[in-house]
Design a protein around this nucleic acid. Sequence first.
DNA 1: ATATTTCTTGAACAATGTTCATTTCCTGTT
DNA 2: AACAGGAAATGAACATTGTTCAAGAAATAT
Lengths: 213, 213
Amino acid sequence: MALDKEETSEKVLAIAETLLNEGGAANLKARTIAEQAGISVGSVYNLFADLDEVHRAVNMRLLDRLGAAGIAAMADLERQGVTDVQHRILAMAAAYVRFVEAHPGSWPAVLAFNRRRATRPGPDAYDALLDELFDIVAGVLKAGDFGLDDKRRALAARTLWSSVHGIVTSGYVANSDSRQAEEIWHQIELLVGVFVKGLEHGGAFAHAETKPA
Amino acid sequence: MALDKEETSEKVLAIAETLLNEGGAANLKARTIAEQAGISVGSVYNLFADLDEVHRAVNMRLLDRLGAAGIAAMADLERQGVTDVQHRILAMAAAYVRFVEAHPGSWPAVLAFNRRRATRPGPDAYDALLDELFDIVAGVLKAGDFGLDDKRRALAARTLWSSVHGIVTSGYVANSDSRQAEEIWHQIELLVGVFVKGLEHGGAFAHAETKPA
DNA sequence: ATATTTCTTGAACAATGTTCATTTCCTGTT
DNA sequence: AACAGGAAATGAACATTGTTCAAGAAATAT
């Protein structure tokens, strides 16, 4: 006999990831997976309930790797004795950007897929990973000596990282590769620089009383 | 007879928008449209090349309305004599948030669809609208007296608005409605406050490479 | 009134997700 | 070694979709 159930699943996921990376969600077809994995269509459905579950599993692998990359980047800085807040945030953002660039096809699919999930109940592994990233950012912010209590620091971390996320994903709707990469990085540098300076000067407390209806 | 070609197209788009809003891209089916519009399947393909074009047209309508809402919000402030930069940016963000909340199903579809388009060449109407929004933000920033040249001000506008976008879209992957809306708004207030304070104190020029104090 | 052009139709085709009765394969028992 | 029972794999079959196109209907021009 050849492969374990576990090994076959891994093979299927690797193939699925390639397919997603090459052509997005529309390129993930049961028959293509079966053919490339050397199994039958039915066997795919033996391993996974449906294609959605395959997609979900691929996304989780990607997200895990992203989390690992973020943590590794932090560990590197730790080892080098870098404590500057701006440097550390920028390093995390750089890790994020590198990761997205390394998965040009599947990253959009991750985002698109995760939006579909919005109807479902309760937090899941995706939220858990996001919280993990937020916690890392919050930890970095704690090192900088802004006058923030825990709650406000957590809010600042979520705000900052969601902003980075927005810059990266907005940037990637356009096409020209290297010029776009530069633009994204300029925006991130500007954001982080302004954000840190703003926190230093108490901008987090400056409210204008305008709320939406 | 009854309806003009133009009118029928409008009817189809209205139906398509409802379908997208209710069930996302997967809910946009040729036969459903045909049935609800009282025409045949083939006639849909007479009016539009394929379903992608229908989706694109719906998105354009939405984006146009979003642009109009943004401009209207600005005009309101103008009429009220509000010139404060923070107030004005927050008002634009509020208009954006309101718009997204009003289209819970189709807004994700707009974003997802626009990502698929990434392979295509050259800028299109979507980029044009985005530039329009960026220009409005840049205009608001010009009123504030930060020491920014045109180029850097444009960069700041893109950065700020992409960040708002990121906060809004990140916020909407989670589920609890009213608490989530509050969280989004807190993040936006924090971002805008910090951003403005940061610009006032020259944070736009503080680079990590040039080692701050 | 007739001819020509234009539009509309819905049946037909191809591609796809998914199911399930059948077959094949493995494992433990005699 | 032979066999029984269950687990896994199979791929044909079904349902649903996007898309096309030959035939007919309607409108328009001559």
